[in-house]
Design a protein around this nucleic acid. Structure first.
Lengths: 118, 118
DNA sequence: TGTTCATATGAATAATTGTTCATATGTATA
DNA sequence: TATACATATGAACAATTATTCATATGAACA
């Protein structure tokens, strides 16, 4: 890979715009992390889990009941949500109660909801 | 599939909570659409395209230059963004200029950014 | 300590998806 | 109309991922 490689494309590249935009792009790492975060929201099972947790903290098998799915599937997805720091949990005997980790989640959902319903 | 099927899980289902939460869940279709929307944000190429368009409208090959990717890849992704009504475009001769469709996108990005940087 | 049970996890499978290559479309101009 | 060129699209391939099944972990309690 060469430095300043130009990619085979069209001849009508607007150099000033390209340079200005390029210089203002956030670091790749940030953009990658952002995509990873949204990827977590991009699955209907996880969206349902999050929506359910808006209402109340719940144990794994409660969530499984609400979604009509088995315990293993929910547990796998809770792990993904946990790794993205979107849910937290507390243990009470054998039971583990999950809840939402912060308020950005609601804000993101609200904006998303506004987009799809307009 | 039976009506009111209970899924094999644990015996410790908290019925009141499950019923309350179940009754307050938005329709599946909404939750599915929401997941589909976030799925669009869940790819780093598309995140980069959106970030680039925050700065300026651009033609396809400008975007390709900024991202260091080929024209076809960008065009495919622009189609996904278009279908999700996240970008709009205008034609000027042979050139097609893309720009962001609405302001929810910025709001969603800001919240996402706050989540990953805290 | 041994059993029960809620939850977690590993492996396997099926489905989805991003990129590339090749080519099509459609606009401008000679 | 023929050519050039920006963009779009279809097919193919590789990679990722959601779910299931089977089993492991670890807490409570007899």
């Amino acid at each position: 890979m060469e430095e300043n490689e130009t990619f085979e494309c069209c001849d009508e590249v607007h150099d000033e715009v390209v340079e200005k935009v390029s210089s203002q792009m956030p670091p790749d790492e940030i953009l990658y992390d952002l995509a990873e975060l949204f990827k977590v929201f991009g699955d209907s099972t996880r969206v349902k889990i999050i929506c359910a947790l808006f209402e109340s903290e719940m144990c794994v098998c409660d969530i499984a009941q609400v979604l009509g799915m088995n315990q293993s599937a929910i547990s796998h997805q809770l792990r993904v949500l946990k790794q993205a720091r979107l849910v937290k949990y507390r243990r009470e005997g054998k039971t583990v109660y999950y809840s939402l980790a912060d308020s950005h989640i609601q804000a993101i959902f609200n904006q998303g909801f506004e987009h799809i319903t307009e």
